[in-house]
Amino acid sequence: MPDVRALLRSSLVWPVVALLALVVLNVVVNPGFLSVRLQDGRLYGSVIDILRNGAPVLLVALGMTLVIATRGIDLSVGAIAAISGAVACVQIAGSNQESAAGTAIVAMTTALAVAVLLGLWNGFLVSVLGIQPIIATLVLMTAGRGLAMLVTDGQITTVTNPTFKLVGAGFFLAVPVAVLVALVVFGATALLTRRTALGMLIEAVGINPEASRLAGVRSRTIIWTVYVFAAFCAGVAGLMIASNTSAADANNAGLWIELDAILAVVIGGTSLAGGRFSLAGTFVGALFIQTLATTIPSIGIPAETNYLFKAVAVIAVCLLQSPQVRSALAARRTTPSRAKAGAPA
């Protein structure tokens, strides 16, 4: 029994339960939901679709997790994704070897370099000038789409390049490349934060900035780094989105992805107040968001109501994480006779 209770107290349990509940709902409505079939050396199925379409959100959410752990937030990731896609597509379209692999690689490298530059800008505003993160990144959130428009001349730039197409829509060993890329970045982030001291220092800065400063932590460098990392992740996500459609859409690429990412982080149990973060939680959170978005139309509810369901999900998760509700639930569990005291969430 004590193990069950410890499990219930772990922050990962509720996101997993929520995800499983969604999956069960889908299986009930559509018994073939979990089936995956191999065709032409590629995996197909609802689950694979969810993983592939969820890859950009997962990437952005990884960067967002680290930013939020430092008590920050990055609203500009959607715009950065759009800029990254725009830079890559315009460069490929403008090349005289439009379908060459080299062209795609150069273009994607340039796009990621631009994303990193934008991250440096965000980090500069937050860590050097001391502007509140929500304001500092709002600048690029609003101005960034304009930048993307400038890059694409206001046109939807379409490209035909098989190498570029691979990133968002291709398969490697039967698995979508986008999923592989997301998993590799996820693994690299986990290693980077948990095998070096970066994760611990990020958490220390997020939990108690003044104590960290007095302990000699270079919090400015740390904060700067996480904004650059978030922008890099957004850049990769932007490449995936553009590659999937073989086009750069400055207006709609990565639109509201920052909100999905924040949602994934919060559902995953990382507090917006900063401090301890959970990459595994973010992983589950991103899957939850994507599954929810897929579930709603498939059970016959109009897709436009998607946001409403997301809102309900957020409220439920936040309630489950709030200390008041948790202690009420705990009281309910330990003393069933006084069940009236604890309001079920």
């Binding site: 611990m200 958490e203 220390a204 939990i207 108690n208 003044e210 104590a211 007095l214 401090g275 301890r276």
Partner: peptide
Amino acid sequence: AEGVVGDL
């Protein structure tokens, strides 16, 4: 305020 990092 200036020493303890409580959640670590």
